[in-house]
Design a protein around this nucleic acid. Sequence first.
DNA 1: CTGAAAGCGCTAACAA
DNA 2: TTGTTAGCGCTTTCAG
Lengths: 345, 345
Amino acid sequence: MAKTVEQIATALNISITTVRLVLNNQAQQYRISSKTQARINEYVAEHGYTVNHAARSLKLNKTETLGLIIPRLSNVFFATLAEKLEIRCREAGYQLMISCTYSDLKYENKLVEALIARNVDGLFVVPSSLQSQKHHVKRSTKPLVLLDRDFGSPDVSLVVSDNRRGSAALTEAMFDAGKIPLFFMAGDIGQPTIKERMSGYEAVLAARGITDTRQWILEAAHNRREDGEMLMRTFLANHHAAPPAFIASSLPVLEGALSVLRTHFGFIPAEINIGTFDEHPMLGFLSNNIWSVRQDEDAWVEMAFHAMQQALQGGGESQRAIIPMTLLYRQRAGQNRDQIILGSI
Amino acid sequence: MAKTVEQIATALNISITTVRLVLNNQAQQYRISSKTQARINEYVAEHGYTVNHAARSLKLNKTETLGLIIPRLSNVFFATLAEKLEIRCREAGYQLMISCTYSDLKYENKLVEALIARNVDGLFVVPSSLQSQKHHVKRSTKPLVLLDRDFGSPDVSLVVSDNRRGSAALTEAMFDAGKIPLFFMAGDIGQPTIKERMSGYEAVLAARGITDTRQWILEAAHNRREDGEMLMRTFLANHHAAPPAFIASSLPVLEGALSVLRTHFGFIPAEINIGTFDEHPMLGFLSNNIWSVRQDEDAWVEMAFHAMQQALQGGGESQRAIIPMTLLYRQRAGQNRDQIILGSI
DNA sequence: CTGAAAGCGCTAACAA
DNA sequence: TTGTTAGCGCTTTCAG
């Protein structure tokens, strides 16, 4: 067990203050005799010393720890986000505590409480619903920064992507490339992000004179892989064929939809044109034409952290940031190249 | 700000103990008068109360928090692992603090210190090297459970997959399916996991009478996406064609390798036979024949947590678990089905 | 340059 | 059934 300041002090027969001073690199400043310093350093090298954050935090009422609450880490989008936010926090000297709600509202509330009880200095959360934890946080006076989903609560800092425009750009690109009919596989449309994406899609179609989009839109209850599976299974059952082009409202939905195709056909038919949100390197595994809308996580992190810092320093104003999205296109090339594969198989 | 026990007590003119008792649901036991209980509950309903874990932890010297240190969350394997471990910890009433090292040894040490300073009750870590943080942990007497990589340190609990056998099974399957030459793209072979995987591969080839495997093995310095890219780029430059069959030593390496193919050809040539470790749903995005070796994360988590609990309860013995792997095969079906796609494109 | 003391909010032990 | 107290390890303030 690493020693405490007091243990060191008594062991060396010096005062606590003196020990503290050199431990905190204030030896110079207070002109501690160099032999005293040496003794202390020696002792520490021998027995070790780690500050006890619990005690420190109790006294100072801060922990240098921030909390992040997301739906799930197995969603690669959130995993990436968590990673980037962690890096940013670390740069600023904060530890980030990451926790998942699994979209369970009750659990989300418990988590918020748990993190506040653990005295985090502030909280980033991807909320599951409107009311959610606001009262907890308000009561605790801890800074709160909402991410990803705009349920419209005022007076809270918020960072989201410009999903509507992003979706519109995606739809336009695919539409203009002649990919029709262009289906839209939507997860939970009660969720603001999805709702925005869908409305961007509908707006473009309407502008193109396609009014009856009903049969192009397929809805599921949630945003999970299973929901994507269900959507594609239903599609296959109804059409006895794969869609020539579709947009998935989120990565998990896409994963589910594609897994069904993979199972059904034994491969992912290369002629299918795929649109999706949440760019991820593994999308490159697909050989299809694929349009993906990237959320600029770096910008998110920057804005979110900035808002957090403001709040931590007692800055009053809550901030709202709407981050532009970028459209990426991976084109499938023609197959007729000579000698693609080495040797015979 | 939620009140403290003392504030509640003074506000209500009761003793701290009494308040504590009802707050901890021991009212029955100590037969607190129901009117007192009512008063307290009312007050709490009104003003709220959250225990201060810092104070609690200072007194009890435990935090009900465990730490997890992994290389990176953007590695989907570790993200999945983190998620599962988090769930398990939560079931047992522990919060899990997840942190990433980005394979930086210095940072790994800092992190271990940081988490110990924050008084975690125990630590799970995917170590970057042999010596690493052992001394920190030893000195702190906190339980330690190592994951994923066996650097051979004795007297520490450890959970790893049976990489050698897993790799052998994979190699056999691909070999027996006639996929030759079968290249092996290896990340950092200094890392025990990769070393084991490679030796499993070599053993099978040797048993099949293929002695000169040199030209089939491609090595990189690390296990990152970039390394996979480099390997495949080099391969293409040397052979002017893609490999008919290859095994990637880990998911990031595969991601990199495939991204180069995708860029080079405009798609992932479907005739390539792919073997990889770290099964992940997104592998289904590929239309190729694909063999993947799954690590049984659920078993890992169970063993790791069990070892942790033992240690937390002062159980002396350190535990070593070697978890079997499972081989999965996704076969590519023939392309000649009628009417795969709906309508014309 | 060094020392002493109070107190952060909680728990456990003991008193009443 | 309820009240009192000591002390976890640290920081801050004031006194030498």
